[in-house]
Amino acid sequence: MGRYSRIAVAASLFLLPVSVFAAGYGAAGCGLGSELMGPKPGASQVFASTTNSTFGNQTFGITSGTSNCGDHGLISMNKEREVFAQENYTSLVKEMAQGKGENLSTLANLYQCPAASHQEFGAMVQAKFDSLVASDQANSTELLSQLENQLTRHPTLAKSCDIKLSALN
């Protein structure tokens, strides 16, 4: 190995830490890139960050390729619960097991449950956790349908919350 190749090896060592960063995913932060929820680990692909390039028909921001977004580039009202539950699934089940939390009360709001009933909502999901998350493979869609089941049967929440989606539209 000649002297210069040794130098080259030494020089290349300095580049290592930088390439280690880049290996992860498309970055986030001030700048150099933010492909939100794109190729990141553990993130779903509900939102693609690219804007529609045809300007006249620009859909601002979140465009989709999914049926979750309206043509105005925001989430369709009737998909809000679904998308929220999917994107925050882990946070949600954690807070359900704990019986309280910000994601949980956001979900309660999405079911139009008044703030006064949130504590009851939390207590209910904690008590019924067993059936809300039926297995390790359970997903957000099942979670919501189980939740709606439980809400319908609940003596007070059934009345104070709006379970049917149509109530939103």
Binding site: M37, I62, E87
Partner: peptide
């Protein structure tokens, strides 16, 4: 580019 996302994401 500017983009707009739900804050929870």
């Amino acid at each position: 580019r500017f983009a707009i996302f739900p804050y929870y994401t």
